[in-house]
Simulated assay, not measured.
Amino acid sequence: MTGGTPVTILSRALRRMRRARHFPENTCPASRQAQIIAEDLAAGRVPPVIAEEPEHAALSLAATVAALWEARDQLARLGYEYRTDRAGRSAWRQRQD
């Protein structure tokens, strides 16, 4: 892992996730469930949904990842590319063709 200790990297990822959430405009039930799962796991807790309804948790995670990849495909079609620097920071930039 680059960019710090695993704890620091996790802390940054959780902060980034929370800052990116703009309810309800850019969220859906699946992404909100994925956020809860991430926060519980980061705190060392087993999310109740994983213990009680693992298929539901898997559905939320899969739907969130699919939506992310679809959004990335759409941005690529619009002329943007996703880059990650050596420090592990990522950003979208307009392609310079």
Rank of each mutant, 00 (worst) to 15 (best):
E25I: 02
A13H: 02
E52Y: 02
T2N: 02
L78Q: 13
A38P: 00
T2C: 03
L59S: 09
R45G: 03
R93W: 09
V46W: 15
E55M: 10
T2V: 11
P24M: 04
A62F: 07
E52F: 04
L10M: 04
R21W: 02
Q96K: 15
V49C: 13
A87W: 02
T5M: 04
R16S: 14
R93A: 05
P6Q: 04
V7D: 11
C28P: 07
L10H: 04
A71L: 02
W92I: 06
R16K: 06
L59F: 11
Q35P: 01
A91T: 15
R77V: 11
H22R: 03
A58E: 10
Q94A: 04
N26V: 05
T27W: 02
Q94T: 11
Y80G: 05
Q33Y: 05
E52G: 03
R32V: 07
D85G: 01
T2L: 09
G88H: 00
S60I: 15
E25Y: 05
R15N: 12
Q96T: 14
S11P: 01
G79F: 06
A91P: 02
A13R: 10
P29N: 06
D73M: 14
D40P: 00
A43Q: 12
L59G: 07
P29H: 08
P47T: 06
R19G: 13
F23T: 07
A51F: 04
E70V: 00
Y82Q: 08
G44W: 02
R89D: 11
H56G: 03
A43F: 03
L10R: 10
I9E: 02
R86F: 11
P47D: 09
L10V: 05
Y80C: 02
A20Y: 04
R16E: 14
R93H: 12
R12I: 12
R45D: 09
G3R: 10
P6M: 03
A91Y: 01
S11L: 03
A42Q: 05
L78S: 08
V49R: 14
A30W: 03
T27I: 03
T64P: 08
E55A: 11
A66K: 15
R12Y: 09
H22A: 00
A67F: 02
H56Q: 11
S11Q: 10
R72P: 00
R77D: 13
R95D: 05
A67C: 07
S90A: 00
R18D: 11
G4S: 01
T5V: 00
H56L: 08
L61T: 14
E52A: 09
R77C: 12
T8C: 01
R12T: 12
T8H: 06
